[in-house]
Design a binder for these strands. Structure first.
Lengths: 214, 214
DNA sequence: ACCAATAAACAACATTTGTCGGTTAAGTAT
DNA sequence: ATACTTAACCGACAAATGTTGTTTATTGGT
């Protein structure tokens, strides 16, 4: 009897300590290896060696190394949001400020983590997906689910805004001698606010209807 | 003497017909194979077999099959924009309408092209990058390069808008029974226009300063 | 028409990938 | 404490990847 393992559960909702340990080790291994080599140059064998885990075990948890990277990025960014207690209270659109700042900080610290050899690779695209998903999730929690059919849905607004934020931050990152994060947030925020205001604020605390910028 | 080949030139600016032929064959092979199998299930061998090209030759042109996909998508979308004569005349922000529509049409036709087996894969992320780059390029050509340092740069606006557009279209695509493209463009456009208006229109034809929507 | 340059074909290679059956050991529930 | 469940280890496999040296044939310039 074999009963091949498949555990699609999110990292944070795993009880079995063996699973937590293995994933921790693998993510840690990727993290440290990327400080030396480019992502493309890291093989699954390298990963499992560094993690002192059997290679076959890797495939019990991730379909490939891209999935591992995705988990690492998404988890890391999610944790940063949690540590900073970042919420999106839809009452004032400028509440998006800490989200943008978090994105700046996270990407700024995690782009230098890999040397430079990111030539090939669907490496960057993966980061994109992970970050935009996380931002979208936060935004969506603070946006009223509109029952009205006219205008964009809450999901549409959240997705559009999250992608816009990521794009803006990415552009900022690309500039060789960039302004500090706090400064650029002031530039980015006005671009994002109108998107978020396309949907009415939640009526839970709607004392004043949609305070503009802030 | 070996003089290993490396041809990083863009497809459209290649003179040698041998190179054009090979890339055409490879892109055509990927296109047709994706109508049957999922991208993940296609090996480089499959590709080169279908293209009647030696496997080693593949690596003379693309670092991996992801790079081939990228070229296919980017080229296809770029061509669609060209066929529709899509320009972005920055004088009126609603000029972004045909760009959004093109993105809708392109993604709508090209998501169904692969069966469904896109489980793993950095497949979608690659499309993202290709489309946003193309949109950014079009937008940037119609945005005045601001010499003023206050406010967002032209690049920042173009990038933010292009990512916002892609995100919005992606969200639309995800909905099971979606409205026709023309309809959703009317919803998306108001989300995008404020971004583009964050930068002054080019003074070439600035009769009226920034006509709002249109 | 010829020649130098170079793209494509070909064969062969070490390495990596993803998977599988079987075993051992750690965790959980009673 | 014991028994059940299941994650991790191990060895092995076919397949795919990426690279290299060499040869052939097409191309563009003179």
């Amino acid at each position: 009897m074999v009963t091949r393992l498949f555990v699609p559960l999110s990292d944070c909702e795993v009880r079995d300590p063996r699973i937590r340990r293995t994933r921790q080790l693998l993510q840690g291994a990727l993290r440290t290896l990327m400080q030396t080599k480019g992502f493309d140059e890291i093989s699954v064998q390298d990963l499992t060696d560094a993690a002192t885990v059997n290679r076959a075990t890797f495939y019990d948890h991730y379909t490939d190394k891209f999935a591992l990277l995705d988990a690492l990025i998404a988890g890391g960014f999610h944790q940063m949001l949690h540590e900073r207690s970042v919420r999106y209270d839809g009452s004032c659109a400028s509440a998006a400020r800490p989200i943008i700042l978090a994105a700046c900080d996270y990407l700024a610290t995690h782009q230098s983590s890999c040397p430079e050899s990111t030539q090939k690779s669907a490496f960057e695209p993966l980061i994109e997906a992970a970050i935009t998903h996380a931002i979208r999730r936060v935004l969506l929690s603070g946006i009223a689910k509109t029952t009205v059919t006219s205008g964009p849905s809450a999901e549409m607004v959240a997705t559009t805004a999250s992608w816009a934020i990521y794009g803006a931050v990415k552009e900022w990152l690309k500039t060789p001698d960039r302004a500090p994060a706090e400064e650029i947030v002031a530039v980015i925020l006005p671009l994002i606010v109108p998107i978020l205001q396309a949907v009415p604020p939640p009526k839970s605390n709607a004392a004043a209807p949609a305070l503009p910028v802030g």
